[in-house]
Amino acid sequence: MTIKRASLPPLLEAASLPPLSQGFGALLRRDLLLASRQRSDLIYPVFFFFMVVSLFPLGIGPDGKLLAKTAPGILWIAALLSTLLATDSLFRQDYDDGTLEILLSSPQSSFVFVTAKVLAHWLVASLPLLLFAPLIAVMLHLDGRGIGILLASLALGTPILSLISAIGASLTVGLRRGSMLVALIALPLYVPVLIFAVGAVETATLGGSVAGHIGYLAAMLVLAVTLAPFAIAAGLAISVKA
């Protein structure tokens, strides 16, 4: 037995919905506009990044060689923490004012709107880091090639971090003390990104080939972009229904 297409109510016809790209673009524009009204969200992660990095020389001493050796790890851990800090606000506002419920109940796939929200968040919270990272890397005596690879690894790695922490944020958005939990959930999952990104920068400063590391990071990015939105959408659906 086959169901006749014509018997479906017109609302469920895919053709009657606006194209997905339109919804994606609209949501992206909306989130960026909201962020531009709240400049602090743009500036705080960068300052946090800067402050954490500058604490390290104070903690381990100003020795240039030691700093250059530990710079990849320091920069990446600082970037990781500032991504984590920024994620708490990812869904909070939309959850509080009910936007999330409306987005989830729309007939369009939640995969698309989740991706748009994470992309907007990455543009706001992580892209400024990329712009300031070379400056801060110079202060840690990282050499030119190292800085180039650092930027490449940040460009590939921070979207993965945003996607992973968005999973944590989606599961804890309805909770009162969510921010600590997001850290507990996301940090263990950050491990592969940290390892390959720091490995890439370290290898670059030693003069080795980094194609392998960057390749792994790119592969993980593809995997995260494909799979994480499903988990985020599922997490949001669970949190919103509660």
């Binding site: 599961l171 804890t172 799979l227």
Partner: peptide
């Protein structure tokens, strides 16, 4: 920690389910 933080048992069940599935996908990569 996630299960302990969510009061409603049904929500806790599904939220921890999502998290443990995310974990098992990540474990080989880690």
């Amino acid at each position: 920690a996630l299960r302990a933080a969510i009061e409603h048992p049904d929500v806790a069940a599904r939220a921890t389910a999502v998290l443990s599935i995310v974990g098992i996908v990540n474990l080989p990569i880690i």
